[in-house]
Structure formats: structure tokens, C-alpha cells
Write a protein that binds this DNA or RNA. Structure first.
Lengths: 239, 239
DNA sequence: CACGCAATTCCGCCTGGCGGAACAAAGACT
DNA sequence: AGTCTTTGTTCCGCCAGGCGGAATTGCGTG
């Protein structure tokens, strides 16, 4: 395990996570590394173009870091197809729509289209949330045979009503979509995109503030999500 | 300059750029590194979660790499505002719209919304193209005082008609937008978003296949681009 | 002007990265 | 089936390069 490599990513991560440029000593403090070590590695990162030093001396991750990441997602089959379906879903519902995948026990937000009047507590593209807290995450988990084990593992780390969730999963499998409201005042409706091999490969979800929803609109959204997921699954199956 | 750090990014870059998983020996060949070195560093990258090894033995960059990049763009003022304006521009024109920034002498594609019937030769989000080849790039360059020097520098590396471009820049400054057709059969119309400080901070452009364009539509697109850029500049100025 | 904090540089110690080579495993070709 | 090739992995001795404590410089502040 190359120590310098590990440290360089530790440092780049703190830069990327920070909002705005950050001082050298802050990086050192946050990573627990020696200032001189951080200085040297930041020097190399700057030389390589992954970080930049402002005139003020502060450091920031550069767009080259973003480019690197953009490269890995570019040839992800899901992402290539999804964009069009996301647009359709957004057009049909008029609300904020999300594309997520399951990564470990979390849901990772791959893409989103925000509504003209966006919801307040909005997740960022590139952020992770514990899967059972989100509609898309629940929709995907419900389609996995090892869902009980997964829930048990997750419950070991955060309070979670496993039995209630397992019951909810039955319901989700029956009607095809999941509902969640972990952000206050926001209702999310999500469904899984089933890949060839019957495994959920992604989820689409629609998030709307509760006050914009009545029964009819909720139903319309649920149907739109289901319909779009089905179409997208087809598109993924035959390239 | 930490050698291991530099090498680890070299390796991760080749993984990210590749389409699909890649074999260890291919990485070694492409980077010119020793197999054992690549193996060790790849091991580290896997441990850190930035790369993954498939059952078949092939290696690929992981979504964590994408997450890292997503973090740096998340708090970029331009990107935060742009999304809505991109959507508007797409709705108003019905064509593929792009958001680019100038990085060095290249234009970097930050975001795009593709038309239902997309153009054939489409640039990828996260890719770079030499600035003077694109409409957005020309629109931004035309607003820079050191444009002549920049063009001269770029011309040293690729064939470029500097004088013609400088003339074109006059025109671009006069009417506000630039036109380009470096992809065969595709016409792009772009304009710069001027930040506080009178420097171009980004560009919006619309790409459409020539056969879908008549004079009226071209004019409408140019106006929509100009209008949207102006509004976006306002939005960036006052947070 | 003096103080304090942050960035940078220095330098000797020594660890951890390096790469050639050997080994194992999986195909490919005859 | 047997051989040959190629690829992934492991081993190990050498020593360059990374490490970090401390000293120095530079900047902004009271």
C-alpha cells in the first residue's frame, strides 16, 4: 500500500469536498499529516494539474480532477441512455428528477434535473445517501434477494426499523415503486430500472414538495416513473 | 515530485480514459511502467476504492473517482446557476445545448443537454477541444485582451489561420455571438457569459445539423443564445 | 514595530517504493 | 493432449526518494 499515493488521494479528497479554496494548514489538520508532507504532495498535485494554488496561497482541486471523473462515467451504459429518459420524466412531471445507482449500502446520485421551482433540501449530484432513506434506494433494495442481510448490516450503523422496511418492500415489489420523505416536506417517488439478469442497475425518482401534490398528481407521477423505468430497461437491454 | 503519486494518477487516467475494463499489461504498456509497479499501485488504488478489479482480472476506474470529480464542480458558481439556463435554451431552441469553460487553450465541456434527435458527431461532457475550433471558444477568446498572443501560441501547435480569426473576432465582438462548423454538417452558435470583471467565465452554445436550419431558425437561435447568456451573467453577478 | 501564524525550505534518517526475475495460471495454437 | 505464449502475481535486495522535525521566510494584524 503505497503511502504517498494513499495520502495524495486523502489530500485531493479534502480539497474536492471543501467548498472553495482551503489553506495548507487546514489540509494538514484535517488529514492529520505533517505540514511539510502536505506541502510536498500538494506541490506534485499542482504540477500534475489536479490542484491549483491561488495567488493568495490557498489550494483548490482543479477541473482536471473533474475531467478524470467524467471519463469514468462517460462509457457507463446506464448514464448514456438515461439522459433522454430523465428529460422525458422531467417534462411529464414538471418536478425534480434524479438518477441514482446502488453503491455498497448507499445510493449515489448520478444525475438530476431540477424543477424551475426547486425543492429546498436537495441532494447534490455526486453525493451519497444511505439507501433505505431514499425512494430509489428502497426500490432497488426491494428487488435484491439479500435485502434482509443488507438491511441488518445497515441497521448496525444507523437506527433503522428493519421489520417495517421488509414489510414495505413487499408492497414495493407489488406496485413497482417506492415512496420516501426523508427530507422534510419533500415526497420522493422512485422505481428501479431492471437490467438484463433481473438485477436493479439504477433507479429513477421524482422529488416534489408536499404542498404541490394532490392524490391525482401523486398517481400520475408514480405512473410516469414506472413507465419511464420500463422503457429505459428495454433500452439498456438492447444496445 | 513524488514519483509514486505521479504514477498513480497516470495509471488512473489511463483507466478512466479507456472505454471498459483494461488488462494490467495494457496499462503497463500504455504508461511505460514496469508491470510489478503497475500491479502494486493498482492494488493501492483498489484498496482506496478508486479502482476495481473484475472477476476476470481486468481493472477499471470506479465511481468513487467520479465522486471525487463531482465534488470539485459542485461548488463552482457557474455550474450551479447554469443548469436552469441550459434547460431554458434547450426548450427554446429544441436543439443540443452546451456549457463550456476556457481552460488553458482548450474549451472544456462542462454540461450539455442533447436534442431528441441528436447530432452525429457529438462532444462528450468532460472532453476538451482546442478553443478556436468551437463557437463557444471563439466567443470567449474574442473577449480577451491577449487573444492575439493566445492564437499565436495555439497556431504553433496546429494549423490555424490567425489573421482570419482575428478578423472574425471583430465581427464576434460586434454581434455578440460566434458560429462554428468544425464537426461536418453541424453548425454551432455560441456566446460568452461575461462575469463581474468583464472576463468571459463560460460560454453557452447550440449545435444543430445544418439541414434543420434555415435563416429564420438560425437567427432565432442566435438571439436565444445571446439573451440567455445575458441573463446568466446577471445571475452570476448577484448571488 | 513587534508579534503570530502560515507557507516554504532544509536536511539527515531510513523506510517504502522500485524493478528485474522467477512463478503460477490461463488460453491459444498445432 | 501437449506445448508455447501471454498475463497476473509474488519475491527480494538495493537504495533513491519520501518523511518529518526544525529552522526560515513572508504576510497580515494588533
Amino acid at each position: 500500500m503505497d503511502r504517498a499515493v494513499s495520502r495524495s488521494f486523502q489530500i485531493l479528497e479534502t480539497l474536492a469536498r471543501a467548498s472553495g479554496p482551503v489553506r495548507l494548514s487546514a489540509v494538514a489538520a484535517q488529514t492529520g499529516l505533517q505540514k511539510s508532507t502536505v506541502h510536498r504532495i500538494l506541490g506534485t498535485l499542482c504540477e500534475l494539474g489536479y490542484a491549483q494554488q491561488e495567488e493568495s496561497g490557498l489550494y483548490a482541486a482543479s477541473l482536471k480532477t473533474w475531467e478524470l471523473g467524467a471519463g469514468v462515467i462517460a462509457d457507463l451504459p446506464i448514464k448514456r441512455v438515461a439522459s433522454g429518459y430523465l428529460q422525458n420524466l422531467h417534462r411529464d412531471t414538471g418536478e425534480t428528477v434524479n438518477l441514482t445507482v446502488l453503491v455498497g449500502d448507499d445510493v449515489l446520485y448520478l444525475d438530476k434535473i431540477v424543477a424551475p421551482r426547486p425543492v429546498r433540501f436537495s441532494t447534490r449530484v455526486g453525493s451519497r445517501v444511505s439507501a433505505p432513506l431514499t425512494s430509489g434506494g428502497k426500490a432497488m433494495l426491494a428487488r435484491l434477494i439479500d435485502a434482509p442481510e443488507r438491511l441488518a448490516r445497515i441497521a448496525a450503523q444507523r437506527t433503522l426499523d428493519v421489520d417495517a422496511l421488509l414489510g414495505e418492500f413487499e408492497e414495493i415489489r407489488a406496485r413497482g415503486y417506492a415512496v420516501s420523505g426523508y427530507s422534510p416536506g419533500v415526497v420522493s417517488t422512485g422505481a428501479a430500472v431492471i437490467g438484463p439478469g433481473h438485477a436493479p442497475i439504477a433507479a429513477l425518482s421524482v422529488s416534489a414538495p408536499r404542498e404541490r401534490l394532490d392524490e391525482a398528481k401523486s398517481k400520475a407521477i408514480a405512473e410516469a416513473v414506472l413507465e419511464t423505468c420500463a422503457r429505459m430497461a428495454e433500452a439498456v437491454a438492447r444496445p
